[in-house]
Design a protein around this nucleic acid. Structure first.
Length: 424
RNA sequence: GUGAUUGUAGCUCAGUUGGUUAGAGCGCCGGCCUGUGGAGCCGGAGGUCGCGGGUUCGACCCCCGUCAGUCACCCCA
């Protein structure tokens, strides 16, 4: 009988790695809150129709990567392949947009049926923010700063910001024609993938990695050359604001987004440290999305940041620093001492936020100290027959390697108080 | 979805042209140390060699299938 393993493309997170997740999530919340963003939590599955309309019928995500199933009433449901569509749905359902601009963030899992490799999973997690109702480039700048601040806090500045504009319904059709005019004469010389992309989504040819396409991509017209006046002004404003904030960026006319809903600004933070799946954070503006999903015309801008990838970059670049020693290891020697110590440790855990470790097995003192070291404990309390006889309890400073005696009074709560005081 | 590559102890890996009892380091448990820890020395536990089939007198090794990881494409967080 083989043990059951986790489904392909999923992973378990457990100590000590889970502590890194906790820390990262806390930092995401802290930074989002500094910008006045509130958390939104939406369902992990939604009506399939929501994603077909929100993400785009012809995207790879909708065409071949969704976990779709029929519920018991025969309704088609889908595990969310991204979080923005659900957020917009919730906004409309609860009429939140009539209250003016909405600034929201989320942290949670999403699902895509893809072939796994490093940095690409079937269940992954992302931190994202969405700003609705703010049409100006200040909002684009604001969400970019949120991502930049998180990246800065972890010292992984090599994840570089790339920006571009994909235009809007006024200017993109003209650009599309210009691209087609450029590539069509060379259709036969393009890679097989790009020939397929030519009619379906010529923009995609721009980020082809096939060397066969390179000469044609290099000479292709860029969206930036075809921007209408409004899009041009928006992009120029974005650049000025980023400069004003001192945020470094590169204009990369070849970044395109995989989701149909993007307009004007698109951006990515890309790291070269973790292989081909190097996009740690991707986002942009989606002024048409809310309307597409049946709401009032409402501008929006946001990003999604992959937590798995972020942590991979942190590990690769910033490395692991030893966490400081924390908490108390409780060591009981003998049954009588164990009974007293259990009460004291219980009271300690009521009173102090620092961890109290205990291994109640009968083992040698030496073994208990090894356990304390493994727990990375800062202190040890020792109670045995000797201490019981003297009404004392030993508190050992594991860094200084020094013992001191504290009075073992009758009240466990009082002993706990003395311990908190002595270790504070 | 396409191509390639890897899978041996909890972890990282050796394992000869197919040969009898599959090894090391780290980690874990114990001893040296009758009550004072991170080092050292000694000892111990721990494996259906990913799984299933086949070839062979004999398979960790060769063949087929399958599952999973990894790399690239594709795509993207």
């Amino acid at each position: 009988m083989n043990p059951i393993s986790a489904p392909r493309g999923t992973r378990d997170v457990y100590p000590p790695e889970s502590a890194r997740w906790n820390r990262l999530e806390a930092d995401c919340r802290d930074i989002a809150q500094r910008f006045g963003y509130g958390e939104i939590r939406t369902p992990i599955f939604e009506a399939t129709e929501l994603f077909r309309r929100g993400v785009g019928e012809t995207t790879d995500i909708v065409e071949k990567e969704m976990y779709t199933f029929l519920d018991k009433a025969g309704r088609s449901m889908t595990l969310r392949p991204e979080l923005t569509a659900g957020v917009v749905r919730a906004l409309l359902e609860h009429k939140l947009l009539v209250q003016g601009a909405q600034r929201l963030y989320y942290i949670g899992p999403f699902f895509r049926y893809e072939r796994p490799q490093a940095g690409r999973y079937r269940q992954a997690h992302q931190f994202g923010v969405e700003c609705f109702g703010a049409p100006g480039a200040e909002a684009d700048t604001e969400v970019i700063q949120i991502a930049a601040m998180l990246i800065g806090r972890y010292g992984i500045g090599e994840a570089a910001l790339n920006i571009n504009s994909v235009g809007d319904p006024t200017c993109r059709p003209g650009y599309r024609e210009a691209l087609l005019a450029h590539f069509r004469p060379h259709a036969a010389e393009l890679s097989a993938d790009s020939q397929r992309r030519l009619e379906r989504n010529p923009l995609r040819i721009l980020d082809s990695k096939d060397p066969q396409d390179a000469p044609f991509v290099a000479t292709a017209p860029t969206m930036l050359e075809h921007l209408c006046d409004d899009c041009r002004a928006h992009f120029d404003a974005l650049r000025r604001y980023l400069d004003a904030l001192g945020l470094a960026y590169a204009v990369n006319p070849r970044i395109v987004r995989g989701l149909d809903y993007y307009t004007r600004t698109v951006f990515e933070f890309v790291s070269s440290a973790i292989g081909a799946q190097g996009t740690v954070c991707g986002g942009g503006r989606y002024d048409g999305l809310v309307q597409e999903l049946g709401g009032p015309p409402t501008p929006g801008v946001g990003f999604g940041l992959g937590l798995e990838r972020f942590l991979m970059v942190v590990e690769k670049i910033a490395g692991e620093q030893a966490p400081p020693r924390r908490g108390i290891q409780a060591i009981a020697l003998g049954e009588a001492a164990r009974e007293r110590l259990i009460a004291i440790v219980g009271a300690l855990r009521e009173r102090s936020a620092e961890p109290a470790f205990a291994d109640w097995q009968d083992r040698k003192l030496t073994a208990h100290f090894k356990t304390a070291d493994r727990n990375n404990a800062r202190w040890a309390v020792i109670l045995g027959d000797q201490e019981l006889a003297l009404d004392q309890i030993v508190l050992r400073d594991l860094l200084a390697r020094e013992d001191r005696q504290l009075p073992l009074v009758a009240s466990a709560a009082e002993v706990a108080r003395l311990l908190v005081e002595a270790t504070g």
